[in-house]
């Protein structure tokens, strides 16, 4: 059953169309990833689904409620963990949870048990009475995850949940996110531009570019769509024309003596390619990653953004307003 459904969802900022007639259907209980380069429209999409931004056109339903007409009901059914910190430094972790419960109208009769439970879930029980000023980035994010769950939402939005965290912390956080998904059965929508994160976590991913869906499927299927293995050769003077004629070679690219291509059954075909291409210095073959998929769909050119903002700290300081985006 779809818990989120969008129909031609569109958001325009002046002349820029940030989200362009997006049609999405997200199933209850899945971890769904929104991938895309900076400025592709991920955060804008999330903001519309969370009723933080009104759509310019089209509509969206979350947990059965229209984001425009029933914003308050949508909000009660969703949790949101922001890219940047949104908890109060001067308060303790537990106090931040308590405030959240009050504001979301959580039944206060067994609030202590509820807070204990979410704190246990993210392993912060022993830090709960410490002011958040002293929390590390990872602890803060974990507390915010716990907070997002306190009112038992049906959908949890995570906007770049591991941005700016070190690899160890990131891996821990993935563990917690997985745990939420299995133990709480909550639907999780995650935006990220860490491909390995999406690969690890998501049941399905949508790659978004220029406000449109470029591809949508399970990470497995997306990777197999690329058509086999990625082969990388270091060649002085590659004879590309000869290689190009081979039927099984796809996505042939050449740059500074490095030739990349994808092919099925590379162990069978590689021999023939090596014979034709010229003096090969080194060979590397590997299974495609989501990163390859991403680059395949979004191209190689760098985005320097109208949106240098989607990057955490600078965004916080420079663009306080989502609307400014």
């Amino acid at each position: 059953m779809a818990i989120i459904e969008t129909h031609d969802l569109t958001k325009k900022f002046d002349k820029l169309t940030a989200v362009d007639r997006l049609n999405l259907s997200i199933n209850e209980g899945e971890i769904f990833g929104l991938l895309g380069p900076n400025g592709a429209g991920k955060t804008t999409t999330l903001s519309m689904l969370a009723t933080l931004l009104p759509p310019t056109d089209g509509n969206a339903a979350v947990a059965g409620f229209d984001v425009r007409r029933d914003a308050a009901k949508v909000r009660r059914n969703i949790g949101f963990v922001f890219q940047d910190p949104s908890s109060d430094d001067m308060l303790t972790g537990r106090e931040n949870l308590y405030l959240h419960a009050l504001m979301y109208g959580v039944d206060m009769r067994n609030i202590n048990e509820k807070m204990d439970a979410v704190l246990r879930l993210v392993d912060l029980t022993d830090k709960q009475h410490q002011r958040m000023k002293g929390y590390s980035g990872g602890m803060r994010r974990r507390l915010e995850l716990a907070r997002g769950l306190l009112h038992e939402p049906r959908v949890l939005f995570l906007d770049e949940p591991t941005l700016g965290l070190d690899p160890q912390t990131r891996q821990h956080l993935w563990k917690y996110i997985k745990k939420l998904s299995t133990e709480k059965k909550v639907t999780i929508i995650i935006t990220t531009h860490y491909m390995e994160e999406a690969d690890m976590l998501c049941d399905r991913v949508a790659i978004i570019d220029h406000g449109k869906i470029a591809a949508l499927d399970t990470p497995q299927k997306l990777k197999s769509m690329l058509g086999g293995d990625v082969v990388k050769l270091m060649v002085k003077d590659p004879k590309l024309a000869a290689v190009k004629k081979l039927k099984y070679v796809k996505d042939l690219k050449h740059e500074d003596g490095v030739v990349t291509m994808t092919m099925f059954d590379s162990n069978k075909h590689l021999q023939e390619v090596l014979k034709k291409v010229g003096d090969v210095e080194s060979v590397e073959t590997r299974k495609p990653t989501l990163n390859d998929v991403f680059l395949h769909f979004t191209g190689n050119e760098m985005r320097d953004s109208d949106d240098a903002s989607e990057g955490g700290w600078s965004e916080r300081m420079m663009h306080s307003s989502v609307e400014n985006r």
């Binding site: 933080l52 909000r75 922001f82 430094d89 959240h100 916080r316 306080s320």
Partner: peptide, 18 residues
């Protein structure tokens, strides 16, 4: 609240169903 708007708590408050 200009400071709040940027870094901390206000966002959480504004997202709440209040």
């Amino acid at each position: 609240i200009i400071m709040d708007k940027r870094v901390d708590f206000l966002k959480e408050v504004l997202v709440a169903p209040l």
